[in-house]
Simulated scan of single mutants.
Amino acid sequence: MASFVNISPSPLLLPRTRHLSPPRFSFSGPQFKNYWVRGVGMLRFKCSLEPRPDNELEAETSASSSSSSSSISTYSWCAGLGGLGFLETAYLTYLKLTNSDAFCPIGGGSCGDILNSDYAVVFGVPLPLIGMVAYGLVATLGLKLAGKNLPFGISESSGRLILLGSTTSMAVSSAYFLYILSTKFAGVSCSYCLMSALLSFSLFFIAVKDFGLQEIPRAVGLQLCIACLVVATLSTSYSSTSQPVSTSLTEIDLQPFTTEITTQSNPLAVSLARHLQSIGAKMYGAFWCSHCLEQKQMFGREAAKLLDYVECFPEGYRKGIKMAKACADAKIEGFPTWVINGQVLSGELELSELAQVSGFKAEEFSQLN
């Protein structure tokens, strides 16, 4: 069969000025079949070389902008939290330098007791003043890094490293002071101390997050050196500090008095008291200590008389009176304190806890719960 090409409509019938639609070609015959396949293949090849859509470029630009905004936001957080800490420590510095009483929303006058203690001074420098300088430095660094306007020709990488070192020292110091607060000031609440610790830890984690997991290993050595230096400095400063006695307590003059136990003892409490006495367990306390009285009330009048109780201030409490030698030798730091089988237990304890620690009979111990 002969091959042919039909062209419809004929070019002679179309206006010469413009083409409203392209001419339609109809192919038939084997010689045009291969050409048609090759043409389609070429068209497909050209489609694969088209440039990327504009939305992909916009996505990359948006991601870059988002990363930059995140970095600026991190420094802004540091500046904001640092400024808040600066205001808090500035207030405490004013109180310390003017010997004013601190307003403590939680804990009553305990904030003032801590602020006036020996632990509120490091080598003669008020601790709030040191904190004010540290928070001020962090706030300034945050502002400068956010505005990319560091002074003295400091590069951004160096500024970030200084920020990490500063927040590391503050976090380690806060952890150290929380330890002091829990061991030397047991039962005392200090809202300013807790707030400062929260700010320090928050700043530290923000600075660490800004570095990322890939950069942090490079700075671990610096952080460890700073942590060791801070702990060594504080430990050296407080090495000669004795048991904390606040200024307000040194003005108190208490004469010794006896307290009355009003509760009745049950047989199990009496048995437990005899057991504690038989194993040499001792209860150290002070005549003014309300928790000591509550501990005795748990045992009752009869059982309390069987306890080996050691009064740490038999001559009363006033300036110049020292703790009884037996209590000082046992390194008693709070009341009441139990020493059972060589184990030191601080605070008011339930009878079931005392029974368990002392090895009281199991069948009687179950009845105490």
Rank of each mutant, 00 (worst) to 15 (best):
C78H: 08
G80N: 14
G80I: 09
G80Y: 12
L81W: 13
L81E: 13
G83K: 07
L84M: 14
G85Q: 02
G85W: 05
F86W: 12
F86L: 11
L87V: 15
L87Q: 10
E88Q: 13
T93D: 00
Y94M: 10
L95K: 06
K96V: 11
K96W: 05
L97M: 12
T98K: 04
T98C: 03
N99E: 13
S100V: 10
A102E: 13
C104G: 04
I106P: 02
G107K: 00
G107Q: 01
G108C: 04
G108L: 03
S110L: 07
S110C: 05
G112W: 03
L115A: 06
L115G: 03
S117T: 00
Y119P: 09
A120Q: 03
V121S: 11
V121E: 08
F123L: 14
F123N: 08
G124Y: 00
G124I: 02
G124L: 02
L127R: 01
P128T: 06
I130R: 05
G131F: 06
G131Q: 06
M132N: 01
M132F: 08
V133H: 00
V138N: 06
A139N: 06
P151E: 07
G153R: 02
I154V: 07
S155P: 09
E156Y: 00
E156A: 03
S158E: 10
R160V: 13
R160F: 00
I162W: 00
L163T: 07
L164P: 07
G165V: 07
G165F: 01
G165M: 10
S166N: 10
S169Y: 08
A171I: 04
A171P: 10
V172H: 12
S174F: 05
S174N: 05
Y176G: 06
Y176C: 05
F177Y: 15
F177K: 03
L178F: 14
L178G: 09
I180S: 09
L181S: 08
S182H: 11
K184P: 00
K184W: 01
F185T: 00
G187T: 01
C190W: 02
Y192L: 11
C193E: 08
A197Y: 10
A197V: 01
A197E: 07
L198I: 09
L199A: 11
L199C: 09
